[in-house]
Design a protein around this nucleic acid. Sequence first.
DNA 1: GGCCCTACATGTAAAACACACATGAGAGTG
DNA 2: CACTCTCATGTGTGTTTTACATGTAGGGCC
Lengths: 116, 116
Amino acid sequence: MVRPGQWGVRARVERFSEPALLLLLRERPAHGYELLEALPPLTGEARVDMGNLYRVLRALEEDALVTSRWEAGEPGPAKRIYELTTAGKGLLDEWASALRLSRERIDTFLDRYEGR
Amino acid sequence: MVRPGQWGVRARVERFSEPALLLLLRERPAHGYELLEALPPLTGEARVDMGNLYRVLRALEEDALVTSRWEAGEPGPAKRIYELTTAGKGLLDEWASALRLSRERIDTFLDRYEGR
DNA sequence: GGCCCTACATGTAAAACACACATGAGAGTG
DNA sequence: CACTCTCATGTGTGTTTTACATGTAGGGCC
């Protein structure tokens, strides 16, 4: 976005969908599409890219931060249900403290911006 | 960072150096190297990439958000002094409100994380 | 059969960021 | 005066992250 007369600003935390995902999964196991719909109110983004969402889920699984199992039988296509592991909970905790730090930095910035 | 057994987490706001730059320049005109040293306490990052810093400065100038002039004569190499324009102040204001939103989203996340 | 919704996924381009290196002035040291 | 150090401004290029587009497939509805 650093280029045209397009200096629209969003101020997003990078990879914010990742901790959001982990938090939702800590609350209860879920499948991808379900998470896709549950994410926006948590992230504040209107839409979440589904392609990348599935990629993140599989990357998390590769490192044993979540596990998955297929759930067939239900009406509609088969669903892959994801569940948080203990390691995954640990990562969520890391995110939480990183986000607290991030919030402090934003506060520092805004205080200085407001001239305090 | 989404790949190896490397799930270290930083939770940075994307392009955060940009509003930081604008804020510093609102306080007083400055040259690149000076900004480079003034940024870390504001962003919380240990180091800021100088290459990208200069690129951002010139991109900002292209869109008339800052102006620059060479300052020679002083001891040491010539410096390019950057100054914030009215449009630049406007962009800083946009960043500030975007950052307030971002902080609220983090709060929402943390509240839910802490089970409230 | 044609259309929509759910569900999972890959391909690829663009944006943001990190790392490495080049250039040059002046100042201090042996 | 060659050597190294700091200040200062940049370019080149690879990696990571995000965005946009597309593909496949089951099932319900009319």
